[in-house]
């Protein structure tokens, strides 16, 4: 028990600044505290350190203005991508037949499916990374709390908000354009594709890239401010376009404007979405190359 507690003390104290971590560990050694006492103490200190920035208005603004709306929008986008992909997954996995491989038509359809699906998947991964980077960069000191809250918003979005929103969309769409289209389709009637698949898609395409983005964003002080600002604008601009597209979709539905009522308005703005990560990748690659060449003038891009 004592050993486990000391191991936990080690892990938890990593949330402290390196200097303070050393001082606290020294205090524990000197006062010969037991593992549970040390764990309680370090948890208390970490909690106080994490709460301290929240006395300011900025973390609250980032929470209310970015973490919650962006988390919900990403959930919605992820749910949309999952519902598109669930049909293809069902088509391939639930109706698999090895003899299909011998048919040329199968390969043509597979290639078409990949072309259709891949940009959305790539855009969602890039967008999630860019949003995570922006959050990590803008809320460096509060990122552990904001990161946990972002994960909770994503979970809420995946399990409650996005399915409800999609249901609402389908309901109004049925009223507006397809009055005779009733009853669940064979794919979404399966619990695997209705519940588990969207959560899995969200974990793989949204949660993991955004956590990686947060990690990079929290350490982005090595990048120049203009570059970071371009990344913020691209990430937030993509989400603003996405939100506007949702608005257009609803207006088209309400006004029954068929030319505007198109699935493209539900898709991620993929050129904007991938621009951020590509820029980051190019900038860090160039920085590594310059620092490798030993040019101190280029150590900051």
């Amino acid at each position: 028990m004592n050993r486990i507690c000391w191991k936990l003390v080690d892990i938890v104290s990593r949330a402290l600044e390196p200097g303070e971590r050393d001082i606290v560990r020294g205090d524990f050694a000197e006062s010969q505290q037991t593992g549970p006492q040390a764990l309680r103490d370090v948890l208390g200190l970490v909690a106080r350190r994490q709460m301290a920035p929240w006395h300011n208005w900025r973390p609250w603004l980032i929470l209310a203005g970015l973490v919650v709306p962006l988390g919900l929008l990403l959930s919605l986008l992820s749910n949309h991508v999952a519902s598109m992909n669930s049909v293809y997954s069902w088509m391939y996995f639930n109706n698999w037949d090895w003899s299909l491989l011998q048919h040329r038509a199968f390969w043509i359809v597979l290639a078409q499916t990949i072309v259709l699906v891949f940009p959305d998947i790539l855009a969602l991964i890039c967008l999630s990374w860019a949003i995570g980077f922006t959050l990590g960069d803008l809320s460096r000191r509060t990122i552990p709390v904001n990161g946990v809250l972002f994960c909770l918003v994503l979970l809420f979005g995946a399990l409650v908000a996005a399915p409800q929103y999609m249901r609402l969309q389908v309901h109004f769409m049925t009223l507006g354009f397809h009055p005779r289209n009733t009853g669940p389709d064979p794919v979404s009637s399966l619990t695997l594709y209705r519940v588990l698949f969207p959560v899995l898609v969200q974990i793989i395409l949204v949660l993991l890239p955004s956590l990686l983005g947060m990690y990079k964003g929290a350490r982005s002080h090595r990048l120049s401010l203009p570059l970071r600002m371009i990344l913020w604008v691209l990430a937030l601009g993509s989400m603003a376009v996405l939100a506007a597209m949702q608005g257009i979709w609803w207006v088209a539905l309400v006004t029954q404007s068929r030319p505007w009522f198109h699935p493209i308005w539900q898709k991620p703005p993929w050129l904007l979405a991938i621009a951020g990560p590509v820029m980051y990748w190019l900038a860090t690659a160039a920085r590594k190359r310059h620092s490798g060449a030993g040019n101190p003038a280029c150590s900051r891009l």
Binding site: E20, I23, V24, D27, R40, D41, V42, G44, L45, V46, A47, R48, R49, A52
Partner: peptide, 8 residues
């Protein structure tokens, strides 16, 4: 006296 209270 907790370490958290002391150092903050």
């Amino acid at each position: 006296c907790s370490i958290g209270a002391l150092y903050t």
